Simulated assay, not measured.
Amino acid sequence: MRFLLISFFIFISCSLTAYSQPSSDKLIRKGVSLHDKGRYNDAISYYQQALKANPSSMSATYEMALSYLMLKDYDNALKYSTKVINANFKPLLVDAYCVKSTALSEMNKLDQSIKLLNEGLERCGDEYLIHYNLGLSYFKMKNLRLSIYHLQKAIEIDTTHPSAFLLYAYVLSDSERWVQSFMAFHFFLLLEPNTDRSKDAFGEMYDIITQKIPNGSPLLTPEDGIDRQKLYDQLRNIQPKIDDQRFQYAFFEQASRQIFFTLGQMQDDSRKGLLWDFFVPIYSEILESGYFDTYCRYTSVSYFPVSLEWWNSNTNKVDGFISWFEDGQGTTANDNDDFGDDSDM
């Protein structure tokens, strides 16, 4: 299920009109519309008509490959994506590599998938989607070290795609790097707060901060200079005694504040890497912004009904936080107009 949720967002929608002949334009657009509605066989029939009108249309060829992939017809997905790759059609070359590699992966040909994606890196350069798919393929092979490497590359190239952060969080969790996994889950939820996979991700993140770790466990040894024993003891001291969502939400907020503050206090010029150069600075700013409670409500809305109630009653605050974040931070909630009264927790 995890792979299904993660893989669902592998591909980017592409504008096709610039790359096809006018006679096949309308047919391709109709096919794409049907594909987006899940009518893959109907979409393919339109792409076939487009190819009759313009046999050299790489846009129709690529869309055929993608629809066949969604139908799990991997042989045809390979056939048509290979045509795009062999034609070296630059506008869709990265996407074609992703379709073909995914088809190979689903056929349990992971070695071939990884070889193909590395070829894609050589031909296309450092592309987010190729690194992401390499991260996914290595994860399936249980090569967590290389999975982490390529997912970090994907995130460094583009910090706006939720799927990379979600998979990164799972890989870090499987690597027993629970503090960094917690941070990655948080950022995924910041980008995608209210979907089915958001609820699953929040549950995974909440399990991280409520887990019971035996004394002497490797999970309590230092992680990239972080005193995990100290953090764990702090979290155990504030865990809710009552199984009620309001207390659980309060614990989530307190635990997040504690972890963000502790890592922010540790940061200095000697610490490098994605954790210290990306995650810690962002969450230190959120802590200082005056929007922290709003942020916690925002990222927990898929999991806690009380957060959804709060969201619906405080849309101005939510909009204010989103504007603050999208504008590159720099102000605090106190610098803005009054947003209205909070709802009760």
Rank of each mutant, 00 (worst) to 15 (best):
Q21W: 06
K140V: 06
Y283S: 01
I10F: 14
L172Q: 09
A169I: 04
V99D: 05
Y46I: 04
R271L: 15
H186N: 15
Q329N: 05
S313R: 13
G38F: 05
F11R: 08
S323I: 01
K109P: 02
I209R: 02
I10R: 09
I157N: 00
R246V: 12
M70C: 13
K30N: 11
M1P: 08
W276T: 05
D277G: 10
K212R: 11
V318T: 06
L27W: 05
D244F: 11
Y97W: 12
D200W: 04
S270C: 07
V171N: 03
S7V: 02
L219W: 01
H131Y: 09
E253K: 15
C14G: 00
M64K: 12
D243W: 03
E127C: 04
I209G: 02
S175N: 11
L144G: 02
C98G: 02
S20R: 09
L189W: 01
F3D: 10
T82N: 13
I85P: 05
R297C: 03
G264A: 03
T102F: 07
S300E: 07
F139W: 14
K100D: 03
A96P: 07
G320I: 04
P222V: 12
Q245K: 14
H186L: 12
D73R: 15
K79T: 14
F165H: 02
R257G: 02
F139C: 03
E288K: 14
L27N: 09
S181H: 02
T299F: 00
L308F: 09
S13L: 02
E63F: 10
N336A: 13
D277Q: 14
F247D: 15
W276I: 06
Q248T: 04
A43K: 10
N143G: 05
R29P: 01
V171G: 03
P22V: 10
F247Y: 15
L71P: 07
Q265Y: 04
Y291K: 08
S163V: 00
E63D: 11
L172A: 03
R123L: 15
S313N: 14
S45M: 11
F139G: 02
V94I: 11
P214M: 01
L191F: 00
Y74E: 05
T159E: 01
D233P: 03
E192D: 15
S173F: 06
P305A: 10
R297Y: 13
V32C: 06
F202Y: 15
Q112V: 00
S23K: 13
A53K: 14
Y206A: 08
L27R: 11
K100L: 02
Y80S: 10
I44A: 08
A60L: 10
A250P: 03
E63A: 13
K26Y: 08
H131P: 01
K153N: 11
S302H: 07
S33G: 13
